[in-house]
Design a protein around this nucleic acid. Structure first.
Lengths: 97, 97
DNA sequence: ATATAATGTAAGAAATACATTACATCATAT
DNA sequence: ATATGATGTAATGTATTTCTTACATTATAT
């Protein structure tokens, strides 16, 4: 990399990459943790109730991914909520992922 | 396969396999097609609106898979419905998949 | 202070949602 | 009767969810 302009372009590229990465991985805010604590159940118990691993619950609580509809529904019911949207807050920001 | 009992067991196994296969792939009834026709839009138009391919819309209309939450949400809004559950009817049968 | 329960992190394998391409069928209009 | 638009099927590839295993950290109780 001799040419500093090319180098700079590369740098911009990396920045863009990081932003896209954030945009993709970021949000899908959920109230799972909040509601789970209200019900005084552990991650493990919730996991068993909806038939996934504890890792999956952790990832969901941290908004790390976009769950399948059925899983979102099961979690909603396990947390005694009526609508999926009560637990998973989907915002316009998420809508370009 | 000389022993007919073994053969029969194998046969039962295949039957079970087929049933499980159905159970997995089957349902997730949706009203996508119904609501889409009400709005007089084509599969292609809906696909563009929610930013997936037409193949994906076809698969969803046929209940061929369990969409991601965000996709389910986008489709719900594109069809002018309030709740995801209005469009995707998740039933107890689906809950062991 | 230390054992134990609960939560978090990481990395790789497995399953499946979704994309892509190409072609087939069906309906409707001309 | 045939062109055209809308819908359906199939096969293969890519991306992301979910599982598995193992270990690290934090909270709680004794």
């Amino acid at each position: 990399m001799k040419n500093p302009w090319l180098w700079y372009l590369g740098f911009l590229g990396i920045q863009l990459d990081l932003r896209l990465e954030l945009k993709k991985r970021e949000t899908i805010k959920t109230k799972i943790k909040e509601y789970r604590k209200e019900l005084k159940i552990t991650q493990e118990e919730l996991a068993e109730a909806v038939d996934v691993t504890r890792q999956t619950i952790i990832a969901l609580e941290q908004g790390k991914y976009n769950p399948s509809l059925i899983l979102a529904y099961k979690v909603t019911k396990a947390l005694k909520r009526e609508h999926i949207e009560d637990v998973f807050e989907i915002e316009n920001e998420d809508l370009n992922s």
